[in-house]
Design a protein around this nucleic acid. Structure first.
Lengths: 347, 347
DNA sequence: TTGTAGGCGTTATCAT
DNA sequence: ATGATAACGCCTACAA
């Protein structure tokens, strides 16, 4: 017991067992047509018997490309991202690729550290949800590393991008509320720095413009996209002399913050306040009497992104620079409870 | 544009640039004390300038061990597992390790495929939530691969194990309900095949035994641990002539199934039915008026498991066989709403 | 302090 | 149909 870990079986071991050369073994294991069927069978049997597994690092040194794909995410506990990780992992698996998970926590330094590691491991490619302002070194690394941006899009990173139509999604939500008669709407989202944040804000404004309405009573709050950020924002909104009759969340965490406050203060939705949440996890249907949500088609987005990456890697086509391929998926608005504003006066 | 991907910079490129030998460069980059500070600085500057990143596969071939750790999970969308993935990823990151995510979907063949890939990539170790009955080949592979079992424990796999005290957790829940006066309790969980399933069942039975009560009115249902499995089980329980006054769930998915039925049928918890859910995601506090849950300390479990694995890998100590190290963490019972049975008669 | 040589496991090329 | 050899990039004894 406690013996040292048996060093891995190599092709040499197999060769010695069957009394053939290493080259023949190597060829047999790749079904080289020049090797007799008989020999192939014999070699494979011996390899299986010994528990031989091809040494991938060695194979890569010979120029073979890795079957690893890096995935950089802010946080996997977030339903949004865990759905992506799952879907991506499945797509990759089907094509013989594996996912290396890197949690950045939205920290540029962690992002950079992970990118270096991935580059060092010579991953075939990387799918990245970039942080707000990636470090210069990260951008340099990405120049040499096949990559796709997911959800967020940072101009200096370049390359292909797959995301959801943020502007359209939030626009849809705002339009929905305006149609119901709401005028005093508040949108609470992240700062304009992240590409998605800016687009979402635009979507709200456009809804007012399209309806030919003034934005006097539209409030746009920029907060940290955390649960507490959402909580504080809603507390402050509800504390106003004339609070909004509807709120739109621009982030999953902000939505959670809203719900936490609403539950704590027993504010009924939608009778007292109409709420449109961002993201549509399974529990949305359970929360309170009715919570309307924006449902981004996360799974198909991830699958699309994964397939594109794999295809690109396979074709060994350069996807590092000068590629503006992209895919945008449309969100669905799941209406479960928004109503007309409670104190609406006939106009 | 569309030029072929620039082949990676090697130590040789750096050496040529600074006019030194490859070995000197290699030593400088590892801060070898024999190299002058001046040279080290020069080399490092050149390396950074060229965007040199050490080739890990090559390093591994020299006997260096990989910094990859495999993580085999049934499903990352499950809060339970995503919390583990996150926590593990963070622990690993802090020690310079990366996590390769493998989703098995509880499929033995996928499990085996992934294990082969991980072995091929020469991961430093693997953390695995085994499927119900792993294939023989998987077990053989694990014999050669440092590993830790997480949550579930399969006897033939061997090695260290980290999990929660399933029996204790469910026992706690049952005891809680018995103390409140419930007698007609139903436990709905997975089949006894998975180690955790069996333990949870034992926990319920022990609560009755400890209280000196007959188990005449205890129902134990074995279902597939899916949302629909939970839904069907509860439907069937509620359809009985004398339905139980309290139900305990033995799985996250089963809990979800319960809640979905309860919401759909507007059954109030706990006034009409006491429910103890398994797993305590953030939304538990929001669901209905009060849902009591079993909260397994998932994060500390994952952190513990990750640290153990890393430590073991570092020490290069054999953790393949004959190691019965283990860690068991205790769950907390979060009481939010269980009450005495509605129709309880004075005894 | 720095350079040289050999080898890790695999595979492509060139023999036999 | 099979064998010998070289090379991938890095590291480390050994040499200078």
């Amino acid at each position: 017991m406690n013996e040292m870990r048996s060093s891995m079986i190599t092709a040499r071991d197999v060769a010695e067992l069957v009394g053939l050369s290493i080259s023949t073994v190597g060829r047999a294991l790749t079904n080289d047509p020049r090797i007799s069927a008989e020999t192939i069978a014999k070699v494979k049997k011996a390899a299986d018997g010994l528990g031989y597994v091809r040494n991938l690092p060695a194979q890569m040194m010979r120029g073979g490309s890795s079957n690893l794909i890096g995935l950089l995410l802010p946080d996997v506990r977030n339903d949004f991202y865990s759905a992506i990780a799952q879907s991506l992992s499945e797509s990759c698996d089907q094509h013989g690729f594996r996912v290396v998970l890197s949690i950045t926590g939205d920290d540029r330094d962690a992002e950079h550290r992970h990118l270096r590691e991935l580059a060092g491991a010579r991953v075939a490619g990387t799918i990245i949800v970039p942080t707000q302002r990636p470090r210069r070194e990260s951008i340099t690394l990405l120049k040499e590393l096949p990559h796709v941006q997911l959800l967020r899009r940072h101009p200096s990173v370049g390359g292909a991008w797959f995301g959801i139509d943020d502007e359209g999604a939030v626009n849809q939500a705002a339009e929905h509320l305006l149609t119901l008669g709401h005028r005093e709407i508040a949108y609470v989202g992240g700062h304009g720095g992240l590409s998605t944040g800016a687009a979402r804000e635009t979507g709200v404004r456009r809804a007012y413009a399209d309806a030919g309405l003034p934005t006097d009573h539209l409030q746009i709050l920029h907060v940290k996209t955390t649960v507490s950020g959402g909580e504080e924002a809603l507390q402050s909104l509800l504390g106003q002399p004339s609070p909004p009759t509807a709120v739109i969340s621009g982030s999953v965490h902000v939505t959670q913050g809203f719900l936490s406050v609403l539950t704590a203060r027993s504010i009924s939705v939608p009778s007292s306040l109409s709420v449109v949440g961002f993201g549509d996890p399974f529990w949305s249907a359970w929360w309170g009497p009715g919570l309307t949500t924006i449902r981004p088609p996360v799974r198909s987005l991830a699958a699309m992104c994964g397939l594109w990456m794999i295809d690109a890697v396979r074709k060994e086509r350069s996807l590092i620079n000068a590629s503006d391929d992209h895919g945008v998926v449309q969100s669905a608005l799941i209406v479960r409870g928004s109503t007309a504003p409670p104190s609406k006066r006939p106009g």
